[in-house]
Design a protein around this nucleic acid. Structure first.
Lengths: 158, 158
DNA sequence: TATTGTTATACTCTATAACTATA
DNA sequence: TATAGTTATAGAGTATAACAATA
């Protein structure tokens, strides 16, 4: 990392990425790498990863939702969610209750322990993100957030 | 996608992700998913992916660089770069020349075909990104870009 | 000793088809 | 027939240890 930074910035072995820097995808991936790496180390003490954390938060905030709803909300395929929920269920952070109105579906609910872990992990993530965004003022954050949403809304327009 | 959008926006099966929306990582992943998905379909006709494209552009812009430099510039581990370069070399888009001053290292260089493909792919990516950013004005793009760089510079400060 | 590129390996995330049980 | 959850599988990205050749 430090080495990459050094080489990219200057020095005899300078690697020019000027052209790529003009691309949104490249800039965004580099920034996302940093955020994701930080998130990983932040969630590791809780035994969570980005996907298990996201699923847990959504279940805590939407108790009773179905797996298909959760998969759609998380932008992932249903089959891939199964192992994520298996993991959370095995750790007794959530339960899969049968939906009485539709016996095909499960109603996902957090356990007490799941709710507590979720709250603690969420605060830790927020604290870490505050550090990552320390140099970005509130106004800029709002602009970034608005841009993210506009990009997301462009999704279907291909 | 359309289904997720519908459920997230409103309706009887509305899934609330309000809490997660306050997290940079969540917003960024959603936006990056869109950008990455678009990039995939844009590069597919050229037989390239994000990583092979990025490596090719950096080699075209920095002919003669070493694999270790390229890996550092791409924020990835050296072993993972090997298969990426194998792919580009097998398609005769780049060559691995021996570095005369250090016989351990390779000097990576684009072939004529590699340079041509790179130029065409690059233009296609730029055009697609213009569409993705159609609703984001120039000033906001500059703010987003600056924020990305500030986040990247926070990396080592953990 | 340290470094370059490599192999091997393992884990995570992603994507698709096909199955079961219900509706 | 369609949907909810599941299984199986394959591709892609990521991370670490260990090796041969060279510095």
């Amino acid at each position: 990392m430090a080495k990459a930074k050094l080489q990219l910035d200057r020095g005899p072995d300078h690697v020019s990425d000027e052209a790529l820097r003009s691309l949104l995808g490249y800039e965004m991936k580099r920034a996302f790498n940093v955020v994701h790496h930080d998130l990983r180390s932040t969630l590791d003490p809780f035994g969570l990863r980005m996907l298990t954390f996201t699923a847990l938060v959504l279940i805590v905030d939407n108790p009773g939702l179905r797996q298909s709803q959760l998969a759609a909300a998380m932008d992932m395929e249903r089959p891939n969610l199964v192992v994520i929920l298996d993991e959370l269920e095995a750790r007794a952070l959530i339960v899969r209750d049968r939906d009485p109105t539709d016996r095909r579906a499960y109603a996902l609910k957090p356990t007490r322990a799941g709710g507590r872990l979720c709250a603690r992990a969420f605060e830790a993530v927020k604290a870490h993100e505050r550090r990552l965004l320390a140099d970005v003022d509130d106004e800029s954050r709002a602009v970034v957030s608005a841009a993210f949403r506009k990009i997301q809304s462009r999704e279907a327009k291909d």
